[in-house]
Every structure is written in C-alpha cells, then in structure tokens.
Write a protein that binds this DNA or RNA. Structure first.
Lengths: 225, 225
DNA sequence: GAATTATCGAGAAATATTTCTCCTTTCCGC
DNA sequence: GCGGAAAGGAGAAATATTTCTCGATAATTC
C-alpha cells in the first residue's frame, strides 16, 4: 500500500474549504453596504455557483439560515472565520527570502486570515541579517531551536526547488506540523505532516489548457457560421 | 473531421492537467540521472499517487507505453510539454506592479513553461516609466492598443483586489481571452473568457483546515494511548 | 524456447463532489 | 389570522474523478 500524503480521515471536503474565503469577500462587501441578512441565492449568483452548493458549504461551518430570510451576515462571517481558524492566528516561519519570499512577507493581509509570519530564514549568508518588511532574516542554524521554543506549527517554503526537500526535512525534524510549499517539488514527509502545495505551475497549466480549449471552441463556432 | 478535434473539445479533466507539471519535474530529474525509460509505477511512488491515476493522466497526452518497460522518458517529456503547450510560448500582459507583480516578473521559469510576460502596466503614475526586471512599466492607457496590436491572449491581474474587476473589464474590452487572477475578487466576465484564479487565500484556508484536522487526529491518538 | 514477472491498457467499480427535487418554514399582503 | 410566494433543508440523483480488476504483452531468466 502506497503511503498517502493526505490523511483521509474525517475532514471537510477540500473544494468546499477553498471556496469559503471567496464567500467571505462577498459577505464583507455586503456588510459594508449595510446589509444585515443575505441569502445563499445571492451569494451563488455573485460567485456564479449553484445555490445548493453554497448552502452545503455554509452548512459545514455549522450555521443555519432562516427560510425566506437567509443568513445573518455578521454571524455568517463569524461562523466561517471560526471554522477556518482565522480568529486565532497561527505563527509561521518562512524559509527562502527570494522574490516570492519577500512578496509573502509583504502581504499584511495574511494576518487577518489567521497567519502571522513571525520569522524568515535563508541559507545565503549575504541575506542573513538584512531586514525584509520589518523582519530580520535569520540563519538556518537558528531554525530548529526557534521552532521548538516558539511552538511553531507552520513552515513556508519559498526556496529554489532543488533545496526544497532539504528544507522540508529540516522543518519536520524541528517539529513543524504543516508545510506551505511554494515550490513544484513533491515533498516527502512522514505521515501526519500536512503539505499544501501552492506552486503556480499547476495553475498555469490549467490556464493554458483551458485557453486552448476556449480558442478551439471559438474557432469551430466561427467555421460553422 | 479528424478525431483529434473531438477529443480536444471535451476538455481534459482539470485535476489531471494540474498534476502534469509535477510529473515533468520528476521526469526531468530522471533524464538528468540518465534514465531512458520510466514506469508509471515509479512516478506514482515518487509522487505518492495511484499508478493507475498516473497512467490515465499520461494517456491524456497521447503517449503509449510498453509493458514491462514503461515510457521512454524523452518522449514522455515531449508529449506532456506539447500537450500543455509549453513548446510554443504565449505572450501575456501583467497589470499591477506591486510586490507580487514584481515577483512574477522576476520568475524566469515561466518562459520554459510557455508563458512570456512581455509588458507590465500600472495605474500609479509613480510606477509608470520605472523598469522592473528589464521591462518598462507602461501606463494603463496604452493597454488596449497594445493588446490588439500584439495579439495578446493572456492577462495577469496582480492589482489590489478593489481594482481587479475594473482591470478585468479593461482587459476583456481590449480583446484578451484568458485572465490569470491573483486577487481573491470573483471576476465577472463574458462567456468564453477563461478566468483562472491563483489567489493564495483558498490554499491557506485548505492548509488551516487540514492542519486543524491533523492536530485533532494526533491529539485523539495521544489520548487513546 | 518456455516460464516468469513487471508493466500497460481498458473498462468496471468505488468514491467524492455537485446538482436536482421535493418538502418545510417564514414572511408579507390581504 | 390566512394563503401565497420565496427561501432554506435534506436527501436523492447525477456527474466527475479516482481506484480496482483483469487480460495482454514484452523482456528476463532458466
């Protein structure tokens, strides 16, 4: 039996979880406009989804709506944010202060979404000691000690792909529980460690594929007419 | 009408397409190590996937393997790259030269993956005229004209989320066919325009959710023992 | 040269996810 | 209050995706 990276125990459907943040954007917009309640039909229409799908997703968070009324906006926002754990922020370490690492360190929005990058590390001595968006870049040697001392659960990998596995090993050894992997490298980690891949290449592949299909469809229509 | 046309009309399963780039990483590693053939079993083992799944994904690209041997590495790489359209690069425009936009402009790897960002635009006059990774930042006014003149199909949106819809409208009006959307804003576009969302927030949500589940599972096990 | 074994291919089965259908609830106008 | 319309809830149906099973094939070993 091949070792599975994902523990397929009881957890929420991942596609649903991924949609939740987009609901939040719309809901906060509603709140800003002074709306008190919102129906899943409205949400679905705005996001071009099926209303039932939205209802199912929202039900995951434990909220119940009222027929003919909808969901109370404030409660719904709170419910989703609680479900996603965005209320109590988790601290994370980032490894690899290149272009992307710097960009991530600059996203102040993460903090509103439950993630605080508290320290950055790099193997390049030239980068160590510099300051990026208010955080000093630390040497890799300090990583293990600090992970333990600060009870860090999340590691963010933004190093060149060849170094990714090595960094992952170091993070796991230090006691990290989840890795946000921005390289395309397929990381090998012990069971129980969560790896979420955020590399852009798969998304680019999907874009290419869909664009190709769209252009072909358009071409065909043009020839039929 | 050739059968290939029909097969492209029914677009490939997106999850499969997203996995293809990860196969490529492994395959190129194999090639570098001097391997000539590789079996889907090996690929599957390395990526912690089911062998049959890998076989089905590879079959999408039209390659046929040999029993007891596997797939010829070079041919397989070529087959996947052709399928993904990584051989003939498409030109793209990027709008929004903030942290992320700059980071994307700095990724030279995109070119090996069929994407060349040929120009960058920004609404901020302070940024217009500056140079980022060798490309001059142009004013938004020039966008429409250049999209048409250069036959650009792909637009990349890396602006603040509030400006995203407006930029998308401008891109669509200019004649763009696909949008790579790095904001969490749900874009409204006419039918036939492809929108691929690459915002990190859904991935972060998935990470949080899975980490939470993993920690709970671990806790549960600990209490059982 | 035959047996053995690893691998691919195809289609069936299983699972996950999304959509549909019907029913209940609640508000609004009368 | 009462009936109708609109909205959400629950579970079934449909669809998409993944996994399983079995048969065929080709290299390796004896």
């Amino acid at each position: 039996m091949p070792a599975t990276l994902e523990s397929t125990l009881v957890s929420a459907p991942l596609p649903s979880v991924r949609r939740l943040p987009r609901y939040l954007v719309f809901l906060k917009e509603c709140r800003n406009l002074g709306r008190v309640v919102v129906s899943c039909t409205h949400i679905a229409e705005y996001l071009a989804l099926d209303p039932t799908l939205v209802r199912k997703d929202l039900a995951l968070t434990g909220i119940v709506g009222k027929p003919r009324i909808g969901y109370p906006v404030d409660e719904l926002i709170a419910s989703i944010e609680t479900f996603l754990g965005w209320n109590n922020t988790s601290d994370a370490f980032l490894v690899g202060v290149g272009h992307l690492g710097k960009a991530l360190l600059g996203f102040r929005e993460f903090e509103a979404r439950g993630l605080r990058i508290v320290a950055a590390f790099d193997a390049d001595p030239a980068r160590v000691g510099t300051s990026v968006h208010g955080r000093e870049v630390l040497p890799m040697e300090k990583l293990a000690n600090l992970v333990e001392r600060m009870h860090i659960h999340i590691g963010i990998i933004t190093v060149p792909r060849d170094a990714a596995q090595q960094v992952a090993d170091a993070l796991v050894k230090a006691g990290i529980r989840a890795i946000w992997n921005f390289t395309i490298t397929s990381l090998h980690v012990p069971e129980g460690i969560v790896v979420e891949n955020a590399d852009l290449t798969p998304s680019l592949a999907a874009l290419s594929s869909r664009l190709k299909a769209a252009l072909e469809t358009a071409e065909e229509r043009r020839m039929l007419v």
